[in-house]
Amino acid sequence: MALQVLINLFIGFLWMFLQDDWSVLSFFSGYLFGLFVLFILARFISAKYYLFTLQAVVNLFLIFICELFLSSILVIGKTIKPKIDIKPGIFSLETSLQGDAEVTLLALLITLTPGSVVVDISRDNKVFYIHAMDIPELSDAVLKSKSKFEDAIKKVTRP
């Protein structure tokens, strides 16, 4: 991906110099042209076209914003009830992700989703220990969003 961005920037600069017009507009049109060239050449440099990766990143972000709103409402609803009726606890969650980057990203996303905080991760990076505010309800919610998050993360990090 880094290589593709570099090639694309190079094509953009080349286009700007060939036009003999040092402006943002000319660079930008060169960059767009570079995107087109890379799209055609993507199968020769044996990598996924980087706009698809970018789209996966945007997709992950949208899923995350959606989850943030839904569970925020849930937690606030529990907080402002006249009588606090919660069953907190720590539950374990197995993940199929591998590598430091993927596990860190999933932990970040789960922690940012209200109602769940990752307290610890086992040594072999396989099991998350998550504190949830209301075990039956929120652990189901986390389990559901976990598979969504994992799919979205795999699309970003794996070719």
């Binding site: 709103f69 569970s71 907080t79 940012l112 905080v117 505010m133």
Partner: peptide, 9 residues
């Protein structure tokens, strides 16, 4: 949970 999340939002 309360201080980290709702305040983020």
């Amino acid at each position: 949970h309360a201080f980290a999340k709702s305040s983020t939002l």
